[in-house]
Structure formats: C-alpha cells, structure tokens
Nucleic acid binder design. Structure first.
Lengths: 199, 199
DNA sequence: ATAGTTTTGCTAACAGTGTTAGGTAAAATA
DNA sequence: TATTTTACCTAACACTGTTAGCAAAACTAT
C-alpha cells in the first residue's frame, strides 16, 4: 500500500514548491508583485492546482508569515541562550530581532506592515510569536532585582516590543542612509530601557 | 475673459471631487478596496477623466497622504501651543499624535503602513512631516536643563518617534482589546523618556 | 485484461483591477 | 459660419484572484 503514501508525498512536494516559488517571487520582486499565475508558471503547473493546496492567495501569505515567525523565534532563542545576565539576554534578543528584520526584509514585511492579512489572520499570527514569553522572563528578573519591584512586567514588555517594531518599520520605509543613526538609537533605547527598570 | 477662469475653476472642482470620492471610499471600505472605476462612478464621470487630473492611482493616494500630514501637523501644532513646559509640550504632542492615528485610522494607514507608495514617494512624504522640527525644540530644552547636556537631541527625537509609531502600528493591527494597556504604555513611555533626558 | 471509479490537472471563463488609444460631440476661436 | 481646440466617452489591453467544467490519467474491482 505504498501508493497512497507516494501520492501524499508528491502532494506535499507540490505544496512545498508552491511556497518556495512564492517566497522566491516575494524576495525577488516584492510581495506586491506576487501573483498566482507567476507561482503556477514557476512550479510548472496550471493555476487551479494551487487552489488544491491553498484556499486562496492569503493562505499562502499566511504560511509564509508562519515560516517567518518560526525563523525569528529560532534566532531569538539562540540569542537568549548565548547570553548570560538578564540585561545581556534582553540586549542580545533586541539585536537578534533587529538583525532578523533587516536580513529578512521580505519576511518582516509580510509578517507585519502590509495591510494584506485580515484582522483575524493577524490574531492567529500574533499567537505564534513566542517573543513575549522569551523576553518576559529576563524582564521580570530585572524588575525583581531593581528598586521598583511593583513595576508591571507586561507594560515593560509592551514598551520594549513597540519600540523595537517602530524603530524597524520606520527604518524600513526608505531612509537607508540613516542606518548608523538607528544603530545608535537601538543602543540608546536598550540602555535606557534596562536602566529604567533597575531604578 | 472669464471663460478660462470658469474652466479652471471647474477643473479644480472635478479634481477635488476625485479626492473626496477617493477619501470616502477609503474610509468606508478601506484603502484596499479603492479603485479608479469606483471613483469614476462616484463622481459621475468616465474613467479616463481621472487621468486628466492624476497621473495614476498612486498620485491620488499621495495627495491623500499629504492631506493626512497637514491634518496631523495642525493637531501637533495646536497641542504644542496649548502646553507650557517642554515636558508638557512633548506629552501633549505624543497624545495628539496618538489621537490623530486612532481618530483617522485610514489616514494613518495611507501615510505609513501600507506598502503601496514606492520608496521615492515615501521620501517625498517624510519631508512633509514637521513633527521633527516641532518636537526637537522641547527636547533640546529638556536636555539643556538636564544633567547630561551632551545627549544628542536627534537621537532622542528618533527614539521618541520610533516608539510612538511602533506603539500605534502594533495597536492598529488587530489587538483592539488592549487599548487600556497601550494607554498605560504610552504614559509609561513618555514618563521614562522625559526623565531619561533629565538624568 | 477489462470496466468502473476516483484522482489529477487542464482549458477557459468570470469579474475585477490600472491604464491608454482613438474617436465623437460640444465649445471656443477665427 | 468654418475651424480648431477642449472635454469626454467607449472600448480595449494586459493584468489580477478565483472557479466551473471537462479530459486524461491512475487506481480499484471484477
């Protein structure tokens, strides 16, 4: 009965090739230029085949965002593991986040930014991000060791993430001449964020 | 020779009606649903007439973003004028910025967010924002009055804006149940931002 | 091996998009 | 009144996402 399994395997291959082709197109031409027909041409199948694997174009984008979040999370986990103190952990993760965004601009733009995914889609996604859990721990440690142990860690988490996201998204839309400045801003922010919890 | 002027006036009326119809559609159905044909129908003209007034769809969006920036700047100026000390000015402008974003979600999404305008377009836009000039002054005052007068005001400006933008854009994509939290984050941030410059 | 059934993949279409070429009728000018 | 300019529209082109319906291939059962 290896037939069914071979078919299954083939089906998954096609599905994977759709995602791969889609990703290639997004990287090469930007997500705006992504089209079902181009994907079909790339995988050497006709258009309707794609709809046997994905309900619609948005589902493909959603899958790519999931890939992006997985990759981001991997990077964050590694950064955290490689760091020692809570401060260093936070700093390392901030840099990892920053690095991911700029080494994978296409991913980041699909993950946030573009208005394409509907609201429900975004909510599904945000659950995927383990960023919260990863960074909440060192934040709590820092607060506990500081002089204001009543500080709300969720508040700080939210501040941290917002700042990081804002810095990245502002940097992504155009101003490529100010990268050094933003490096400084990132450093400045991390420093003041950390010291703000100690005090 | 009032004929030419009457014609001119009429042309401007049509142009204005295009922008108004476009704006209506963006507000009602979101910017994704905006189409040239819908605009044409709304203004009761045929499609090509629109191209007598705008080079392409993007030019219409660009004009809307300009309107948005004008409105935002007006709000910021008023907020600044109504405030006293540098701290209060910064706080008032942050709230004005926040308020604008959520009372004019469509504007804010066209101004930032959506990947539609090309990079050149965005660069044209960012010059329009007088946010920098407005907020730089109280930042400088605050730094001068503080204990670290060597602090780079541009750095602080950048930090401030990034944070604000990040907070808003994260809040805009979905999580409408956490508005109170984000209000707190905004307060928390402003506080730590201001005190960070005094120290 | 043959008949029937499921799966697989295609062509072609629908409805929508931005954009433009080309023509007509009205208006202004001579 | 004749001519030129302007205003405007119809129709098309080249795309987009999506789907209905059909032909051929592959598998199953007799």
């Amino acid at each position: 009965m290896g037939i069914a399994e071979r078919k299954q395997r083939h089906k998954e291959e096609v599905r994977a090739s759709i995602l791969e082709a889609a990703w290639q197109l997004v990287v090469q031409e930007g997500w705006q230029a992504l089209s079902i027909r181009k994907i079909a041409e790339a995988i050497e199948y006709s258009v309707p085949v794609i709809y046997d694997h994905f309900a619609n174009k948005e589902a493909i984008l959603l899958e790519l965002t999931k890939q992006g979040f997985r990759k981001l999370n991997d990077g964050l986990i590694k950064a955290k593991e490689g760091a020692g103190s809570p401060e260093q952990q936070i700093e390392a993760m901030a840099y990892a986040y920053w690095k991911f965004a700029f080494e994978n601009k296409a991913y980041y733009q699909v993950m946030y930014g573009l208005g394409i995914p509907s609201c429900e889609t975004v909510n599904q996604i945000s659950e995927l991000s383990t960023f919260s859990e990863l960074i909440l721990e060192p934040i709590k440690e820092l607060i506990a060791a500081g002089k204001s142990p009543k500080t709300d860690p969720f508040l700080k988490l939210h501040t941290f993430w917002s700042m990081l996201h804002g810095l990245i998204s502002i940097n992504m839309m155009g101003n490529e001449d100010k990268e050094e400045l933003n490096q400084l801003v990132l450093q400045d922010f991390i420093k003041s964020f950390v010291s703000g919890m100690k005090a």
